[in-house]
Structure formats: structure tokens, C-alpha cells
Nucleic acid binder design. Sequence first.
DNA 1: GCAAACCCCAGTGGAGAACCGGGGTTATAC
DNA 2: GTATAACCCCGGTTCTCCACTGGGGTTTGC
Lengths: 145, 145
Amino acid sequence: MELSTKSEYALLALLELAAHHHTKEPVQIRQIATEQDIPDRYLEQLLASLRRSGLVRSQRGAKGGYLLTREPWKISLLEIIACIEGLDANSTVSKQQHSSPEGIVIHEVWQEACGAAEGILQKYTLQDLLEKRNARQQPDIMYYI
Amino acid sequence: MELSTKSEYALLALLELAAHHHTKEPVQIRQIATEQDIPDRYLEQLLASLRRSGLVRSQRGAKGGYLLTREPWKISLLEIIACIEGLDANSTVSKQQHSSPEGIVIHEVWQEACGAAEGILQKYTLQDLLEKRNARQQPDIMYYI
DNA sequence: GCAAACCCCAGTGGAGAACCGGGGTTATAC
DNA sequence: GTATAACCCCGGTTCTCCACTGGGGTTTGC
């Protein structure tokens, strides 16, 4: 089960937006692209998807760029991946026109497994990732353990 | 997160083998294919993969076919999917040459999510699926609840 | 020895991933 | 009010994988 670079790019980009969120100023594609080493024209498409699904909004013109529409602690990783991977909420539930009883139980178990993974992705927010990154860079912050 | 038909076919086929396991007689590709509505030439390739990874063994010649190498309760669904999807044990662990700290934390969380899903698939065996299917066909077996 | 089964290898059509590029639109700044 | 910095939209390209098809070869039971 590999994480697609598509989703990884999206997560990196949103993480970058989250890091600049307190400034209230838009971040440009170019900036994110060079910072995280992502091909900029490709990143543009991904940000367009994120914008269409309402996770970010864009400011056009000079000094423009992208901004999160919500606070970093209100955006779960599941939302991001679901949006970029194109799986709308019902797609996991539907698709149940399987005839054989074997097919049905297989899909039940598969759904259970997916649900477990999605549960993990649901509970982490952009804020959590930022904190995890900071903790990794300054491990002395863990002194209180 | 869709289950590939590839994995679904493999699970269906092994489920068929598990159902006939007590007879100790090989089951033919054609039989599985017609029973579960799988293109037989394609199923042949999948069974070849399963054989190469040691989950099934084959009997050549007339009256030949396929047999499970282990009992149905000793084969987890994870093994099957891992084999057919081509992810050997270390592939999930390696691939860690990511430079940015953001990339690292993203992959950590992704691994946690995958681990959760794999945990589910690990705990179910072919036997469990057979029982689930039977319970579905004869719900009166649940009387003891 | 022949037919039933598996075995190996090769190719095909379609879909999606991961890009690149051209030209258009909007807004700031001088 | 024009130059410029940014986003916006649409299209094409290369590559890989999936799902499948087909042609032969080999082993075995009767």
C-alpha cells in the first residue's frame, strides 16, 4: 500500500500552508514548489483540486497565492487524501452489487480494514503533523517525559 | 481505497479451495472460474503467483488442479493480498529516503494507517470467511445469542 | 497415446499517474 | 494604465499497471 506522490504532494503543500497560516498572507505555488521540491505546474493542478473541494482558497493577481479555508487543527488528513484521490464519501459504501455470497463477505472484511486505516487518517490533523515535525526537530522538548 | 479485482479473484479462488479442502482432492481452474465467474486464463496467472509464493500447490496432468498447502485457518487474508499485490514484507518499511522532515512525518502516519488495515486483514483467515459466509446463508445458526 | 489438466510467455486495450506547455484572466504596483 | 506577478483552464505525453486474451509446451491418468 503505497502513498501516491499525488497525495504526498498535497499533504506537503497543505502542511506548508498550515505553517504560514498565522501570517494570514497567501503562499504562492512557486514558494511551496521550491520549498518541498515539487514540480510547480503539477502542484498547480493539485491545488486546483483542493480549491474545488473547498479545502483552500486562492487569491489571484500579484501577491496572490493560496490560503487554508479552515484552521490547521480542523483539517484531517483523511479529508485531504479523500479529496485528492477522488473518493467521495459514498464510493466506499456503494459498489455493493456483488452476486456471490463470497464476494459479499470479502467486501465486508475489506471495508473493515479500510475503515481502520481511515480512522487513523481521520484523527490526525495538519496541526498534529506540524507538531510531530517540530518534536522531531527539537527532541529536547520531550524532557517532561 | 478499492479492492483490486486481482486480489478479489485470488481471495475468491482460495475461498473455493478452502471450501473443498476437506476432500483432499485438487480443484481445477475451470471449476473455480465458472463457479465464481472469473476469466479462466487470468485466474491461471493469479494461481501461478500464489503457487510461486507457496500458498497453494498444483497437481499437473489429468485430474489435476490446485490445493491449499496449509489449513484454511492458518492462512490470513493479509498473506494472500500481500502476495498478489506484490508487496513483500520489507517494501512497507524501506523506501525511507525522504529528505524533508515533513515527508518523514507524513510517511510515519501513513505507515500507522496501513498497519491498522493490515492488522484487520491479518486477523481474518480463510476459515473465518467461510464461516462468515455460512452464517450469512443460515442466520438461524445464531440462535445461541 | 490421447485428452485433460497445468505451465510459460507474449501481446493488447484502456486507465490513471506524473508530468509539461500554451495561452487567458485577475489584481497589485509603479 | 500598463507592466508584471500570480492564478486559471485546457490540452498533450510518457509510462506503468491492470485485466484480459492467445499460442504453444509439458505432465499425467485412463
